[in-house]
């Protein structure tokens, strides 16, 4: 694939690595608890932040590959022109709301960084990196969304896999 070096692909790689790390972290935590009586300190708190960051970074790849669920039940019945007319307002709404999400979450991320936001738990873990990942994930997703519109190919139901 020509776009294998795109930010979307890299974000997805990081997301995948993060999920594998979460798997190891949890397994080690369980083993340590069984054998030493005490788990990995902060495993739960770190897992929460890593998990959030991972799934957000995977957003764009999901959008690119068509993993996000859509239905073409009506649109496949329409002619090319009426399909465009039918879809256009929804398309605009999607772009507007993605921009709003990006704006609102970037504000939250900034606020979180400024006040060193953390969650209550055994230890304090800063959560702004996950909030930043959310905004990055949404920006990349918007890019992929726009690319997908340009392609404007009829949906293959298999893509919903």
């Amino acid at each position: 694939m020509a776009r294998n070096n795109s930010p979307t692909a890299w974000a997805a790689v990081i997301a995948g690595i993060g999920i594998v790390i979460l798997m190891f972290l949890t397994v080690v935590d369980v083993l340590m608890r069984k054998f030493t009586g005490q788990g990995v300190p902060g495993a739960l708190e770190y897992s929460e932040v890593i998990l959030a960051a991972c799934v957000f970074l995977g957003f764009a790849a999901a959008e690119r590959s068509g993993a996000n669920v859509k239905t073409n039940m009506i649109t496949s019945q329409l002619s090319r022109t009426s399909r465009r007319l039918f879809v256009l307002p929804a398309l605009v709404a999607c772009i507007v709301f993605m921009l709003m999400l990006i704006y609102a979450t970037s504000f939250s991320a900034y606020d979180s960084f400024i006040r060193a936001e953390s969650r209550f738990g055994l230890i304090r873990v800063a959560i702004w990196p996950a909030r930043v990942a959310l905004t990055i994930g949404l920006v990349l997703m918007l890019v992929e969304y726009l690319v997908n519109i340009r392609k404007a190919s009829p949906q293959d139901p298999l893509q919903n896999l």
């Binding site: 959008e63 996000n68 669920v69 859509k70 239905t71 073409n72 039940m73 009506i74 649109t75 039918f86 879809v87 307002p89 929804a90 398309l91 709404a93 999607c94 709301f97 993605m98 999400l101 969304y145 949906q155």
Partner: peptide, 13 residues
């Protein structure tokens, strides 16, 4: 929005 072939998560948002 769902019928206009948009991602369902966005339709909900």
């Amino acid at each position: 929005i769902v019928l206009a072939e948009q991602p369902i998560w966005l339709a909900l948002v």
